[in-house]
Design a protein around this nucleic acid. Structure first.
Lengths: 369, 369
DNA sequence: TTAGCCAGCCAAAACGTTTTGGTAAACAGT
DNA sequence: ACTGTTTACCAAAACGTTTTGGCTGGCTAA
């Protein structure tokens, strides 16, 4: 016998999960109130008597009622979730810097009671991932990280007029919310400390200069030079597109190939640590005949304690930045606040015994401009 | 003048985001068709003529219509998203093993077109995080990883009768879907190889034996002993609750404190690598007078190439496991398939020149039981 | 007493889909 | 010509909330 073949779905089959969850309707029936009143009681409206509100709250507690998010989403046009589409270049999600920000974001999402929808998108298909997500209405706003100078994702999101927050900044930073540090100012200060202690040949071991943060850092170092009227060649610029693995060692090796280099400024404490093998190998000593300063992002799974007194640190925990990101984004999604930028605090932690030029042993803390 | 104080919400303020998205209603109007027909055309029902379907598809294409997920969620009772509530013990999301699984999960989510809702929950509050998520209806199913022998999260989820998949296994593995490797079999095989090559004192550097996987691995080693009638003290058991950082070095140091140990079996390639410093320090040589075997999880950000010919590896990429997890979970959510378990393939990669006892230099590959 | 106000409640509409249960027209078989 | 089947469509209900725009009855002020 042939099956009749009408109304057969090609795709999704409807599963038969048993749903006997308690809805607002059940509560209304049980309490002899209207749905409206239940809803308004729970949402803090003032036109519900205190007595009734307590009855409702009690009923909610004992029934375990939790409003159905899907229904809320539909009617409020809010999803109560945030999207983060991470560029999945090699190692991106393994990068300890990312992990640190991620941890902060997760924590803040929990306290703000937002869901985080995380995805990894290939670079080329990224705007389409945003596009789809927006048209589907699946999140209220996005987190964008590691912007490039004029980042196409940001162009797209600005155009789509959808809330987002950037970890970092690029050219259009007045048009969106961002959380960042004063990269230029910090590196200007660190390089300045070195110059002011008599160093005349230093190396900058920078991150990937395709990204805005690294460009700013280089600019900061340049500013320190110009401010003092020093020659351009007093800095050896080094950078890497692969900040994990061997970069710290190799770039340090390159930096020390010129024996007149007396100070190295690192863009990350991981590279600074990795570089120590090359320092020893070159017969140099950090905190002895070599000054080392580095940006410290407060990576909790990297143990810097052996270097606490040998390196100078500019410290600004990325985890805090992660939390701020969520706060800023939620402010924008929920209360429609105008774009705002936040420069995270930086504390300077000055190495002892670091001077190679007979100048005062202690660097004075600097205030990032 | 006093403000009238009626109907003031305490919490959420409704934002005024401009919504001019195209809905199914717009399409229906424009095409002169009913909403039903549009919906059915798009969902692959056979009661729409091919001609009409093409018109619909074309209109969708040019209008950029994307069904509103919130509405779909409400009516279908499906969210098309998966939840992963990760225990946020120290270093959990920084662990390279996790990162690898995560990468696989993300990739599979993209191909399956599922959203991943990721959260970090403190151990104590975990079941309540699941509970809330379930009652809110915010995901279709959960990923659970690193089970303990009788894991309370699994108890809870079984009880809640909600789809989930476990990376790993514990006592009740017939009741849920899981993806795992044959931990006992693999470690039985590796230890067996060592014994069969004449080693009589070996060390097991295991992971955290609070977790099922590590317990299984120890059992596997024990089985190898029993099978050969060897004395129990031919294995030194070592394990750590902090597999990152110094554990590899320290445990190796401990293992080699007994100079009669001629082989070390590691639970992770990271520990094996970290242990090399201690090996050198003890004046021993991996692949020379010390046999080293390790589980290799295919961590892509760990460069094992220096050890390719010195260590023996049992290899099973965690990324693949991540992809399987999603496949298994989607099968369960979408098609309500019964629980199924999957043991991932393992390939053995045998070190050369590893024998310290004058026995054949090549180990023969073993089939994990 | 009466108008006005306020506190406290509610019915119904709306959000944007999917699904149910049809109908009308065309076609086929007798 | 009549009956049944098939094709191609559709109106309305449903999903579970929030919000709008009421209404009622009691209190206050004149």
């Amino acid at each position: 016998m042939l099956e009749k073949q009408t109304r057969i779905r090609r795709s999704k089959a409807r599963g038969g999960r048993r749903e006997n969850r308690v809805t607002i309707k059940d509560l209304a029936r049980d309490l002899g109130l209207s749905i409206t009143t239940i809803s308004r009681a729970l949402n803090g409206y003032s036109d519900v008597s205190e007595k009734t509100r307590l009855r409702v709250v009690e009923a909610v507690r004992e029934s375990g009622y939790q409003p159905n998010r899907s229904a809320q989403r539909l009617v409020t046009q809010r999803t109560h979730s945030l999207g983060w589409i991470k560029d999945e270049r090699a190692g991106a999600i393994a990068d300890p810097h990312f992990v640190e920000v991620f941890a902060g974001v997760l924590r803040a999402c929990r306290t703000e009671n937002y869901d985080l929808v995380f995805a990894a998108g290939h670079h080329s298909s990224q705007t389409s991932a945003y596009d789809r997500s927006i048209r589907e209405h699946s999140v209220d706003g996005f987190i964008v990280d590691l912007p490039q100078p004029r980042d196409p994702r940001i162009s797209f999101l600005l155009d789509a007029d959808v809330p987002f927050v950037v970890h970092g900044r690029e050219s259009r930073s007045s048009q969106y919310s961002w959380v960042d540090i004063d990269n230029a100012g910090i590196f200007k200060a660190l390089a300045g400390l070195m110059f002011d202690n008599g160093h005349r040949r230093i190396a900058l071991v920078n991150g990937d200069e395709h990204f805005a943060y690294a460009i700013e850092r280089r600019k900061g170092v340049n500013a320190a030079i110009r401010q003092r009227g020093l020659p351009a060649d007093c800095v050896t610029y080094l950078s890497t597109t692969h900040p994990m693995g061997l970069a710290g060692y190799q770039l340090t090796e390159q930096a020390l190939a010129d024996p007149s280099v007396t100070a190295i400024l690192y863009s990350s404490s991981i590279m600074a640590m990795e570089g120590q093998a090359a320092v020893s190998r070159a017969g140099r000593v950090a905190g002895g005949d070599l000054a080392v300063a580095t940006m410290d992002d407060g990576l909790r799974h990297v143990d810097l304690s052996p270097y606490e007194d040998l390196f100078t640190f500019a410290r600004s925990p990325l985890r805090d930045a992660g939390e701020r990101l969520v706060d800023a984004l939620v402010a924008r999604c929920e209360r429609d606040e105008p774009p705002s930028g936040k420069e995270m605090d930086v504390t300077f932690h000055i190495a002892q015994g670091l001077d190679s030029a007979g100048l005062p042993k202690k660097w004075r803390p600097a205030k990032a401009a």
